[in-house]
Design a protein around this nucleic acid. Structure first.
Lengths: 210, 210, 210, 210
DNA sequence: CATGAATGAGCGTTCATTCAT
DNA sequence: AATGAATGAACGCTCATTCAT
C-alpha cells in the first residue's frame, strides 16, 4: 500500500545498528500512539527507548527519515496482513469483505501501529513525508478503484462511482482504530463483520447473505 | 451537534467585546484553514485579525478557550445548515440521504470552516478541547444511532449495527472536505448524491431508486 | 564602506523597540569582541544584555539579521570616522596617510567594534551575511583602487598595481585591531603614523617627508 | 617559523601509526581547506580519510592535538619552501623580496595548505592552540624584525619601526591565499613580484629598480 | 480595552569525545 | 590497531502566555 522506497542507500547495516534502528522505530510507534505525534519529540522517543536523543539523529539523520521508517514498518506489517487468507475468493463481494475484515482485524491486533498511521496522516508532518504518504495512499486508492470497477464489469457490483466508494471505504477503515479503542476486544470481530456487511450492501445493493 | 457550554461565566459581554471576539474567531478559522493548526499560533492569528497577540489572551484567556469558540462557531453554522430543507421528509431513506447531501454541500460551500474541524480533530489540541470535541461527537453519534434504529423499527432499513453504521458514515462525512478539495466545484453535487446513494444502499440493502 | 541596506522593511519602530535593538546590538558587539564569534550564541548575548534569549529572535527574527545589524552599526561608525578631518587635503599622499591614520585611530578608540569586523569576517557566518560582507568589501576596494589610480595619474604615486596595493593596505588595516591590542594606548598614534609612512613610502617610492 | 613542540611525549611511534597519523592530518587539511574549519568535524575528517571517527581521538587524543599536527605539517612545508633558493642574496632588499615572492608562490602552489593556516587562525580554535599559534607567530615576527633591523643597520633600509613593518607585511602575506584565489594561476607570479616591489619600496624609500 | 515587549521551556540537530568490542 | 555506537551539552528558533504601559 506504500511505494517501495527502493533506491535509497540503506546498503549494508551492521547487526547491532539494525537492532537499534528497530528499537527506536518501535519506541517511536509507541510514543506516537500513546502520546500523539505532536508530543513525539526526539527526547521523548529516546526516553522510551532508554537511549540518548542524539542517538536517533545518529541512526536516522533527520526526523523525516525516522518518520518514513515508522510508516514503512507499520505499512509493511499491514500489507503482509492484508495479503488475504489461504481460501480462494468466491467473488468480488467476498473480496471486498475480506479487505474490510482483514484491515479491521489488523487494527484490533496492532492498535498502536494503526493509530500511528492516523496520527501522522493528520499531523504537521514535514512536507516530503506528507507527499510520500499521499503517493502511497493514491496507489492504494487506485488499486481499490480498479478492483471495484472490475466487480462492476462482472455484474457483481451495482453501478456507482468507484472513487466515491473508495473515499468512504478508506475513511471508515482509517477511523477503525479510534472506534475499536472504545470497544472490548471480544467485539472486534463482530465490528469487522458488520462493517464488511455494510460495504457489501453498499456495493451490491442487496441484503448481505451472511 | 455540540453541547451547550452552559456553566461558563460568559455572562454579560459588552457589544465591542463581542465584536472583537467574533473578529478573532474568524481570523482563527482562516488561519487554521489556510496554514494548518500547527502554524496557527497566536502571533499569526493576531496578524490576520490586525490585532496584538496579547488581545487574544485577554479575550479568551487560553488557547484552549479560543479553540472552543472556534469549534462552536463552525458547528453552529453546520448545525443550522443541517436542519433540513422545507420539503417534508418522505421517509427514513430520504432523511439519511438529506443528511449526507446536506453535510457534503455544506463542505462545498464552506470549505475552510469544515477543514478546520478536521484540522483540530486530528491535531495536538489541549486535552480539555479534545474531550469537549469527543462529547460533541458522542451527542451527534447518539442522535444518528437513534435515527437509524427508528428506521429499522419502521422496516425501512435492513438489520445492521447502527453504531458501526454511524462510525462509517461520520468517517466518510468528516473526510469529505479533503476529498472535495481535489475535485472541481461543479462536481460536488454529484459527489454528494453518490455518497448519499452509497449509504442509502448500505442502509436499505436495495439498489437506490434515483 | 558597506552597501546601504535600503529597501528592507524596517519601517517605523517604537522608541522602546529601537532602544532594545540598540542594547542587543551593543551586547552582541561586546560578546563577539570579548568571547569570539563562535561563542557569541543567543544565550550568551542575551545574558550580557540581561535579557532572555527569545527576545533576540523577537527583535531580529534570525541570527543572520542580527549580524547584519551588528555590521551596519560598526561600519556606520567607522564610515563616519573616516570621513576625514576639516583641514583640506594637500595631495594624494596626504589622503592616503589620512586614510591609514584615520582607520588605525578608530581601531584605537573603538577596539571592540573593530575586532568584531575581523571576527565575523573570518568566521563561519551564514552565507547571505558572507555575501553581504563581500559586496561591502568589494565596494571599499574599488574606491581605494580608484583613489590610487588617480594618484598615479597625477604623478604623485609611482607605478604599481593598485589592486595589489589595496590588498596589502586592507590586510594591514584589518589586522590593526589585533596588533594594537598588544600595545599601550599611548603608542597607538605612533603606530598609526608609522603605518601611514610605510604605505606612503610604498606608494610614492620616496622617503616620507614627515 | 613554528616552535619545536619539544617536550611532548611523541617518542616512539610504530611505522603504521605514523602512516595513519599522516593520513589523518592530510585528510584534516583537505577538509578544513574545502569545507572550512567550522565544518571540519571528526566525522567529516574521518570520512575523508576512510577511517572511523574514533580513530582520530585514538591517535591524537583531542581535537586540539590534531590541529597542532595540522599546523606543524603545513608550517613545516612552508618553512622548507621559504629557506631560499640556491643563488646567494645580493642584499637585504633582495632578501625581503625573496621572502615575499617565496611566500606568495608557496600560496599559489599549495593553496589548500595555506588556506588552512588562515582558517584556523581566524576560527574558534581551542585556547591552547591559539596560544601555540601565537607563540609561533611571535617567533616568526622576531626573526623578521631582526632581519629588518639589520638591514637598517647596513643603511639599506630607511628608518622605520620594524615591528609595524612586520605587522603589515605578515598581514599581507596571510591574506595572499584569499586574494590569489580570485585570480588565474598565470597571474600569481606577477602578484608575487608586485607585492615584493611594494614592500621593497616601503622598506627602502626608493623606487624599486626592477 | 488594547498593546507589544518579554519570558522560558521545548524543538531537531551537531559535535567532540568515550568505550565496549 | 581500529571500529562505530553512544552520550549529553549546546545551538538557533518558536511558542503560549504574562504584564507594564
Amino acid at each position: 500500500m506504500q511505494p517501495v522506497d527502493s533506491g535509497d542507500e540503506e546498503a549494508k547495516r551492521s547487526f547491532i545498528e539494525e537492532a537499534r534502528r528497530g528499537q527506536i522505530v518501535r519506541a517511536a510507534v509507541e510514543t506516537i500512539a500513546e502520546e500523539g505525534y505532536a508530543r513525539a519529540s526526539f527526547v521523548r522517543i529516546a526516553a522510551r527507548a532508554s537511549v540518548s536523543p542524539g542517538l536517533i539523529t545518529y541512526h536516522f539523520k533527520t526526523k523525516e527519515r525516522l518518520l518514513r521508517q515508522v510508516l514503512e514498518y507499520v505499512d509493511a506489517r499491514l500489507d503482509r496482513a492484508m495479503e488475504g487468507g489461504p481460501e480462494p475468493l468466491t467473488g468480488f463481494e467476498d473480496g471486498l469483505r475480506r479487505i474490510v475484515t482483514g484491515h479491521v482485524m489488523h487494527c484490533s491486533l496492532h492498535p498502536r501501529e494503526m493509530a500511528v498511521r492516523q496520527e501522522i496522516g493528520g499531523a504537521d508532518v514535514p512536507a516530503p513525508v506528507r507527499e510520500w504518504i499521499a503517493r502511497g495512499e493514491e496507489a492504494g486508492r487506485a488499486e481499490m478503484v480498479g478492483f471495484l470497477t472490475e466487480g462492476q464489469g462482472h455484474g457483481e457490483f451495482r453501478t456507482f462511482d468507484p472513487e466515491v466508494f473508495t473515499d468512504a471505504l478508506f475513511a471508515a477503515l482509517n477511523h477503525a482504530p479510534a472506534r475499536l479503542r472504545r470497544r472490548p476486544p471480544e467485539e472486534h470481530e463482530d465490528y469487522a463483520r458488520e462493517l464488511a456487511r455494510l460495504f457489501a450492501a453498499a456495493a451490491t445493493g442487496r441484503e448481505p447473505s451472511d
